[in-house]
């Protein structure tokens, strides 16, 4: 599942994950939409934009943990701000990794694969 408020980024991510990586993807445009669809879609991994209007990434994650049974799903944050402290904070919030924006669409699926393998061994 991918959550981002920008249409263009969602479109690129879709190409990057569905076409390059053969993933099954649900694309959501807000934290609220993600919360609504999460349980039904039951993703194995959630890609969450950090900075979104209304529900931001960390808050969405909190809600996911409290309100759904998806508390243990791998969550990767996507962000443009990459202070070491911030990254440590995201990890503390329960993100298993952080992907820096802008990302390379051709290698995004590869990155997610390696994150997946790393956390499922």
């Amino acid at each position: 599942m991918h959550v981002d408020d920008d249409d263009a980024i969602r479109a690129v991510t879709q190409v990057a994950l569905e076409r390059v990586g053969d993933f099954t993807l649900l694309s959501c445009s807000s934290g609220a939409e993600a919360l609504q669809c999460a349980e039904h879609f039951a993703p194995q991994m959630i890609l969450l934009d950090v900075m979104m209007p209304e529900l931001d990434g960390p808050t969405t994650l909190e809600h996911l943990k409290q309100e759904t049974d998806l508390g243990n799903v791998l969550v990767v944050f996507m962000t443009a701000k990459v202070q070491e402290r911030e990254i440590a904070r995201y990890r503390a919030l329960g993100a298993c990794d952080v992907i820096i924006k802008p990302f390379d669409p051709m290698t995004l699926s590869e990155r997610l694969h390696s994150i997946w393998i790393q956390h499922n061994v």
């Binding site: 408020d5 920008d6 263009a8 980024i9 690129v12 900075m51 979104m52 209007p53 443009a80 924006k101 802008p102 990302f103 669409p105």
Partner: peptide, 24 residues
């Protein structure tokens, strides 16, 4: 200001993703 900031953030992210570097 928040609204403008959010728009700027969103546009910057996608502009850089699409390699519109100067604008981003």
């Amino acid at each position: 200001l928040t609204q403008l900031r959010d728009t700027a953030h969103r546009l910057a992210g996608s502009a850089l993703t699409f390699v519109y570097e100067q604008t981003g």
